[in-house]
């Protein structure tokens, strides 16, 4: 699919600016239906141990989301050290036939799932050196984001609020600082709760939004996926269109101020 406003990550063009996770759906049918409704071309997956000796014949996620149709973004969710994250992504690359686009996240704390930035930076350096195209989950600290970009990450992905919280865009000012300085795509990677949050992220100038729970935990995930697709598109168009300036406490009518049938009323008010 070509678009005249593509998202470009690691040299590859994508028409959709919505990236979705594939976790926490009722079943694979619902996962597939939600991904289709979202229009996402990039889908995140987790890397986990197989259940040895159990259900060798059961269907897998890859049967429902064939790697030929989607760009996979294997993640390092659950990793708390740089070493574990690097090992996980080396295995992901082997699993996905040399695929290099990955999502790095090194967590610091199971309560908040906040990123451990020193470990994240360490893992990013190793992965970039090994030829991975690293999209990196990070704090909304412009200095950390810049460091990650300098290391060679292909996208920086600050949290908007805590992973899975649905609390929305809590610090638009920090996101703006990151967006304004970045020369690689900036994605909001966590915290979106509903469609307006996604639109706000895009209006701020984010290049794309990555979400999972906001769709999978909605009462109707497929309908929410459709809403998110529209919100991301609307937010992008609003950003490109450029919003009107804010005029605090200074009204300006949209209709002509002349030719009113009761000009006396204006004179009286003035």
């Amino acid at each position: 699919m070509e678009s005249n406003d593509p998202l470009i990550i690691a040299g590859k063009h994508y028409a959709s600016r919505l990236l979705v996770g594939t976790g926490k759906y009722k079943d694979f049918e619902e996962t597939r239906a939600a991904v289709d409704a979202s229009g996402a071309q990039i889908v995140t997956v987790a890397i986990r141990r197989t259940n040895i000796g159990q259900n060798a014949g059961e269907p897998s996620l890859l049967d429902y989301l064939p790697p030929a149709e989607f760009t996979y973004l294997p993640n390092t969710a659950g990793c708390y050290t740089a070493d574990d994250a690097v090992r996980t992504l080396r295995l992901a690359r082997e699993l996905l036939d040399g695929h290099s686009l990955v999502k790095l996240e090194v967590l610091g704390d199971p309560q908040t799932l906040f990123p451990d930035m020193p470990e994240t930076l360490k893992a990013a350096e190793i992965l970039v050196r090994e030829g991975f195209d690293v999209m990196v989950y990070c704090s909304d600290d412009p200095i950390q984001a810049r460091r990650l970009e300098e290391i060679g990450c292909v996208a920086v992905m600050p949290l908007a609020s805590i992973i899975g919280s649905g609390m929305g865009i809590l610090n638009p000012w920090n996101l703006r600082l990151i967006i304004d300085q970045a020369r690689v795509p900036v994605l909001v990677d966590a915290g979106v709760g509903t469609a307006s949050d996604a639109a706000i992220a895009m209006e701020l100038g984010c290049d794309a939004v990555l979400m999972n729970s906001a769709i999978s935990h909605a009462r109707n995930p497929v309908l929410m996926a459709s809403a998110m697709k529209k919100a991301v598109q609307a937010g992008r168009e609003a950003f490109l269109a450029g919003r009107m300036p804010r005029k605090l406490y200074s009204a300006e009518p949209s209709s002509p101020q002349t030719g009113i049938i009761a000009p006396a009323a204006i004179a009286k008010a003035a």
């Binding site: 997956v45 890397i47 294997p74 969710a77």
Partner: peptide, 26 residues
């Protein structure tokens, strides 16, 4: 262990083996 070496690399006593798949995740 790359797929191309699965028929060469030998698993022996005391080895630690991880076998992974892709699953749903965010």
């Amino acid at each position: 262990v790359p797929k191309s070496r699965h028929t060469e690399v030998v698993v022996s006593d005391g080895d630690r083996i991880e076998i992974i798949v892709a699953v749903g995740g965010g």
